[in-house]
Design a protein around this nucleic acid. Structure first.
Lengths: 348, 348
DNA sequence: GAATCATGAGAAAGCGTTTTCTCAGAGCGT
DNA sequence: ACGCTCTGAGAAAACGCTTTCTCATGATTC
């Protein structure tokens, strides 16, 4: 049995531009023209082509299209941990904003494996028209080297020396200082900072901010406790926190704060009566904890959509190496119920 | 100035297979062969090609590759709402599992707009090697019609009549019955079900389950209260819940339960002393609420990775229309601190 | 009425790969 | 030494589209 023949006829190959052309009795070129409305086509012919297209349910193959046009209408995002609500929110904002302009987003999760970031970003870039790099953990040197190769690139929570890469950053240093100030104003004098992942740039910013805070408040005791970035690490720090004797706790972020809240509750330590706790980020869950969490709100939803706007600007400018916007957000302290004046009993 | 010439020379076109071929003094074909290790190539030549490739930092263009191979190494996922932790978890599991096999994932968020689902799914399918449709809100008829056109397809929380589409579902009906049973066993006799989105298939399953529950427990009062699927809708239901006089509340999911928890706390209603509350899903936050939430755990992390496994099976079988696995998960009731025996005072 | 021009459709050349087809040359047997 | 097979590399086709180039046709102008 003529295999070649069978294969050719029978193969339920997707309908292509050629099929439409044949049915309408015109050339591929003409079909392409009417589908894209590029050149003038005789109205009668155009109608015939359109009819053939709907009848065959023709939909242009995006891969062929991408190859011909040199663009994919897709952007990539690489995040260190898709389990983190902050990154989820950014992804969501980005995706929705991009969709509005007909773009899709491809995701890559580096799972906090620093060495994977550059590879993932590169792969994403080759498949997409641009990449947004979200809180990359890689070194400054590596980032500096990688950035140009990624070009339509938007950085979140990091910056490059060259000003032709737009960046979105949050002033974590200021935010953490304001939270600390809030605790001091309430009367706390013994604080603990429960720090985050070592390679996190935002953690370093917090540390720098707290250095400044120390200079401004030599009378306040501020201990550092090493932690992580998630629930569990907050929960695990419970004993150490209690042992510290501090009355005001600055958790790395809301997740850590929530883990801690839960741990303290289990131990019968009341918040905020016995210990005050602050978070950071203001994830959607923060105002629903018990007690609702005092935190520093970063405009988590805007971040994603702004990232898209910056990306779009670059895609449209295509080439002209202009200097790009460096957006910086100031977190806003959100005072809820997890902080209060410390009990009046003198510290040990 | 010779524009054409300049453009050709100067254009910082990405390095292509042709450049490598030229540098190594061989043909495109040979470069392709050594890059893919398909055919036998003289070791000396292969080495020369490889050297040229690394020197030029050549990386094959995935779009060209996709066109030639007819596959993109990408799968799409469409979800009704990327803000929902359940879908986020599925996305994450899917993404990580797929990445392990060298696949990427493209996301599409229908934002609960039912009419968009089919379009998004179709577009995703054209760009990808397969699609996973997550809790689609579309009608059965529409789903039935769409499914074949999407073919390598995995359904989550829905099924088709034809058994050649693998599906992953959770027995919400049984789960909600077990939760209700748990409350009854504790001694509750007045319950409320705070329902979810109308078009959600999983909500319908819960309702069916509760119908059965009613038959099994004619002595128990079970009211229905219309709600939504997020924090806010739970929070907003607080008054209605209090007014209902019920002592046991079955929230649509954990999000709703958390909103309610928060609302009840604000109103000074104690959980579980005054009212017991259950959630559904066991999102990561559920065990960190105050009090920790009694809920029905769906294996949220497995769902994503299993979806990938089912997808991979189909991609590998390519063609042979075998009948596909229909996986069903039974939620496991997770008893925490938000449920307890009702106070002994007689109901109103 | 012939020369010029605008209009619009087909032919063909890309886009960057993979893969089949073809063929040169080396190695082997007789 | 001749022909045969076998290895391996280049030429070319294919993937599905867009776009430039080319050219026919009919309209316009002097």
């Amino acid at each position: 049995m003529g295999r070649g023949h069978m294969a050719r006829r029978n193969t339920n190959r997707r309908v292509g531009i050629a099929d439409v052309a044949e049915k309408a009795g015109v050339s591929h070129a003409t079909v392409s023209r009417v589908m894209n409305g590029n050149a003038a086509v005789d109205p009668g012919i155009a109608a015939r082509v359109r009819a053939a297209a709907v009848e065959l349910k023709y939909q242009p193959n995006p891969v062929g299209r991408s190859l011909a046009l040199g663009k994919t209408d897709t952007i990539g995002i690489v995040v260190p941990d898709l389990a983190n609500p902050t990154f989820q929110a950014i992804l969501r904002g980005l995706s929705i904003a991009a969709a509005q302009d007909g773009y899709r987003v491809l995701i890559a999760d580096s799972s906090e494996v620093t060495s994977e970031e550059a590879i993932l970003a590169g792969e994403a870039r080759r498949r997409c028209d641009g990449v947004v790099l979200c809180a990359p953990r890689m070194s400054d040197a590596e980032l500096e080297e990688l950035a140009p190769t990624l070009h339509p690139l938007v950085l979140i929570n990091r910056t490059t020396i060259a000003t032709n890469t737009p960046s979105l950053s949050v002033d974590y240093g200021q935010g953490i200082q304001e939270l600390a100030q809030h605790l001091v104003t309430l009367g706390h004098r013994r604080l603990v900072f429960l720090s985050g992942p070592e390679h996190s740039a935002s953690n370093r910013q917090r540390l720098v901010g707290l250095d400044q805070f120390r200079k401004d408040h030599p009378d306040v005791e501020l201990q550092m406790l090493h932690g992580g970035s998630n629930f569990d690490s907050g929960h695990e720090s419970t004993e150490a926190i209690i042992a510290s004797g501090a009355t005001g706790i600055l958790a790395f972020n809301d997740l850590v704060a929530m883990g801690l809240l839960s741990g303290l509750h289990e131990r019968g330590v009341r918040v905020p009566e016995d210990i005050s706790v602050t978070g950071f980020d203001d994830i959607p869950f923060a105002k629903y904890t018990t007690p609702p969490l005092t935190t520093a709100a970063v405009p988590i939803n805007e971040l994603g959509s702004l990232a898209w706007r910056r990306m779009r600007e670059q895609i449209q400018q295509a080439g002209e190496a202009t200097t790009q916007a460096q957006d910086e957000f100031s977190p806003r302290v959100e005072i809820r119920k997890s902080t209060a004046a410390p009990a009046l009993k003198p510290a040990s």
